[in-house]
């Protein structure tokens, strides 16, 4: 993490209701450029909802999401342009089953950034090589294992050359033997200086790669800190209780 802190994503009093259920109760937080932030907490506490608000897949009930100085939830904002710079990886992979591995990656750059086909393909092959999938380029996703699908989903997002990557429980739907490979890819990505926000249940992983941990419970950030502080010396009662259950 750089010494000079440049805010990349900021939320201001972010609230989200699903009907009568208040899932986020006013979160004000800043993610800085180059930072790796892990979000942990109990299920149903609002961590995925918070993450999904950052690229407005969930529309906030109130409050602001500011990305690179632009208020994303303002009506006049062209969301698509900003979303191109916010990569997202989902728990269920969500690769496009009707497209080959290569087309999964080249589709968005060619359609929305008007990248020439040859350039998009070259870039896609380079990315596939980095995650060990170059021999699968012309396969359809149904031939891939869960771990391979998730690695594809990661490079699909990377192909847009985003400024930040959001990970929504990227290993929760994987068979245990697939988890390591995917975490390795995320770790490599984080080491290149990519800003990453990761919702995860992998405590050891969070501890190892994060600059900062956010503990979200009952719709608020109940505690935050460096992995060191957070795991060794949690201050909040709920954090202590949570950690005692998962560690």
């Amino acid at each position: 993490m750089t010494d000079q802190k440049i805010p990349l994503i900021e939320t201001k009093n972010l609230k989200k209701n699903f009907n009568d259920l208040e899932v986020l109760k006013g979160i004000s937080e800043t993610i800085y450029k180059g930072e790796v932030v892990s979000i942990i907490g109990p299920s149903g506490g609002g961590k995925s909802t918070f993450l999904r608000c950052l690229n407005l897949l969930e529309e906030p009930t109130s409050g602001e999401v500011i990305f690179e100085g632009n208020v994303l939830d303002a009506k006049s904002t062209d969301l698509d342009v900003h979303r191109q710079k916010i990569g997202m990886v989902f728990q269920q992979f969500n690769v496009f089953p009707h497209l080959t591995v290569l087309d999964n990656i080249t589709l968005a750059p060619m359609l929305e950034k008007k990248v020439a086909e040859a350039d998009a393909k070259a870039k896609a092959m380079e990315l596939l090589k980095q995650v060990g999938l170059e021999d699968k380029a012309n396969e359809y996703p149904r031939k891939l294992s869960g771990g391979q699908k998730q690695r594809l989903a990661i490079v699909r997002a990377m192909a847009m050359e985003p400024d930040v990557m959001l990970f929504d429980e990227p290993t929760s739907a994987l068979d245990p033997e697939m988890v390591k490979g995917v975490l390795e890819v995320i770790k490599q990505l984080a080491e290149t200086g990519m800003t990453c926000v990761i919702v995860t249940h992998e405590m050891n992983f969070a501890r190892e790669i994060s600059d900062r941990i956010l503990f979200i419970d009952e719709g608020i950030i109940a505690e935050e800190g460096t992995p060191e502080e957070f795991f060794s010396n949690p201050k909040n009662e709920r954090t202590k209780e949570f950690l005692s259950q998962v560690l």
Binding site: N55, L57, D80, V81, H82, R83, Q84, K85, I86, G87, M88, F90, Q92, N94, V95, F96, P97, H98, L107, A108, L111, E112, A153, R156, A157, M160
Partner: peptide, 27 residues
């Protein structure tokens, strides 16, 4: 079609139109 498909497409910055024509309708 799984809503995750549309979410993935929109998160890549695909327009609503492209999401419909390139991702949802073909499936």
């Amino acid at each position: 079609v799984d809503p995750g498909q549309s979410e993935a497409a929109r998160s890549l910055g695909l327009s609503a139109k492209h999401t419909m024509t390139k991702i949802i309708l073909p499936q």
